[in-house]
Design a protein around this nucleic acid. Sequence first.
DNA 1: CCTAAAAGTTAGCCTCGGCTAAACCATGAG
DNA 2: CTCATGGTTTAGCCGAGGCTAACTTTTAGG
Lengths: 137, 137
Amino acid sequence: MANVHQRIRSDHATEIAEDYVEAIADIITRNGQCRANDLVRLFDVTHATVNNTVARLVRDGFVTTEPYQPLDLTSTGKTLARKCRERHEVVRAFLLALGVSDATAIADSEGIEHHVSQETLIAMKQVLDTRSLPDGV
Amino acid sequence: MANVHQRIRSDHATEIAEDYVEAIADIITRNGQCRANDLVRLFDVTHATVNNTVARLVRDGFVTTEPYQPLDLTSTGKTLARKCRERHEVVRAFLLALGVSDATAIADSEGIEHHVSQETLIAMKQVLDTRSLPDGV
DNA sequence: CCTAAAAGTTAGCCTCGGCTAAACCATGAG
DNA sequence: CTCATGGTTTAGCCGAGGCTAACTTTTAGG
């Protein structure tokens, strides 16, 4: 009864790590490299905040940095990014299939993705694979 | 592009407020009253933590307390509790309809509920109303 | 080649949501 | 009536994730 709540609370730090790692991977894909400033713009926080967070990511083995150089993901970081990106995609596609607007699908998936278990993810994928919900509903 | 992320971050405090308010309402319904100790047991945190959090809830106008007395919800608190409970229920029922296990539906809905917009909630309700997903899938 | 602007870093502060430890109140049993 | 016990409160600590302000490094223009 209690552990459910514990999990939710401790997950918060992980969520931000996931958001950053996912973003870094995306930006590298798009631009060839990712600089701290790109994250500043994306998340709309200050340089100092990005620095703090990136320092934690380095500490936790997801990212490598060198002074005044672009950020890089470790292989652990890349794996996490891939997992997050896929999960994020599934959730967004699922919400769209549910029939909500693009904007809502984007906004909600951003928050929901971190709380979707493997089992739920598979269930969502199944729905996406076997039928389009929107006209079926 | 940026505001999406802003929202996610500032929501964290709200999530905990919502969890507490929802829990307090549930406990009052079940036991006739809610004491700090009930929350200690439910969330598996210390008295001190419950005290801190409840102090914020009082500050924010959701709860009233008197020394050594049970907690009470303000009308704002009751309204919020009702909204949260309903949303939580819809999400859990929806996940069950998706075909995941009871345990997963309980665990995931706990995390997901805070990130479901009104639009998505309505879409979920529509699915629940118009058909049972499980055998339809 | 030098300097202004942009990018990055550092120091110091805040709140939130946790914790431990210690004190305080209330009550039921002896 | 006293006192053990359990509920409650208070004080003081921590890490995460924000901030501002001041500084340094890099880079691009003239």
